[in-house]
Design a protein around this nucleic acid. Structure first.
Lengths: 188, 188
DNA sequence: CACATAAACGGACCACTGATCCGAATATAT
DNA sequence: ATATATTCGGATCAGTGGTCCGTTTATGTG
């Protein structure tokens, strides 16, 4: 890749990061390009779709989340590991308002640039869930896809300004519905 | 109101109903106008915003849901009354894809044409919840706003094509999290 | 029935969106 | 220094919700 192209790409990524953090994931691509002192066509050449841009932007976060899931697989409490990882997932999405809808669309759209990352994330969650289930610490009638959907719904909830104040509390309620009751997570 | 205006209004409402049922609540207003053989300006004069159009379109459904809630207040099982009403709410939104997001935005936007209907609905749910709580059949740490948010999240889940297959199952999971455990609802 | 007037209509327009094209500018290798 | 392949971005397109204003039309009064 040519040096100037690389510079533009990096600059665009940085600009997109702040723009999305400020105005949500459906900010105008033209605005991002403008703020990066670059033509819209340039942005679209580097990132042909909004999904592609987000994928590049969120890839490291994705990787951190999956890495954290793997680390937690060695934890001594499968229940706490699961709940705490789920909490991290939901909390992470609050950084980038609007990303949840795109992820939900991407998980079953193999064409989407976000598809692979979403599938990986779901698999990581599924492993944590399976471990908790094996330890008798989680309902056995939910699977990885259920978990993904539930996290997405809770994240969406946090994205809606009017519902966001309830998000944390409802996370606890829903989390208790998944992990089996013996000992409460102690967070409420 | 002049006779021709009334006719246009009714025709627009009918056309909007089918258009939204087909393509979701964010279908192009221009399309609706076109299909109704009417100028976009005419649609926007009758219904100045998309919310206003939806409010007119969904008002009867809203009223049916609140009426049903009131009827259920006399039921002999506060727990079943609550769960079955919640199920109805979620099921209803599947008729009009995309309406959930607008309702979530409207519940705290007093300017929105949907605001009043949403507030009424939330109040109806809150009464059913309070009754269940009084009967010891529901968690006491959730309120009407929590209920509204939870229903919205589950409805949103059903709106996402990739997550929709899980919606029914997850409704049961979440419902069990709200009503207290003594007797399962028997739906799983 | 004819006509005046108030009401409703809709085409033309605006600013905005994502997207595409292609001539101009430019970095890089020879 | 030059040739070439790469990158750039302005112009343009079809689409969106929204507004304006001249034209049409329904309606009730003389």
């Amino acid at each position: 890749m040519r040096a100037d192209a690389r510079k533009n790409r990096d600059h665009l990524l940085a600009t997109a990061g702040t723009a999305i953090a400020e105005h949500g994931a459906d900010v105008s691509l033209r605005d991002i390009a403008r703020r990066a002192d670059v033509g819209l066509a340039t942005l679209l050449r580097h990132f042909p779709t909004r999904e592609a841009l987000l994928d590049a932007l969120l890839r490291t976060s994705f990787d951190e989340l999956t890495a954290r899931a793997e680390a937690l697989e060695a934890s001594d409490s499968p229940r706490d590991a699961l709940v705490s990882w789920l909490r991290d997932c939901v909390a992470w999405t609050t950084e980038y308002r609007g990303v949840t809808v795109l992820m939900a669309a991407a998980i079953e759209d193999t064409e989407s640039a976000l598809h692979a990352s979403c599938v990986t994330l779901r698999a990581a969650g599924a492993r944590l869930l399976a471990r908790a289930q094996a330890a008798g610490a989680a309902r056995t009638d939910v699977d990885g896809a259920d978990l993904f959907a539930l996290v997405a719904a809770l994240a969406w909830l946090g994205d809606q300004p009017s519902l966001a104040p309830r998000a944390d509390h409802l996370f606890e309620v829903v989390a208790h519905a998944i992990v089996t009751s013996p000992a409460r997570t102690g967070a409420e």
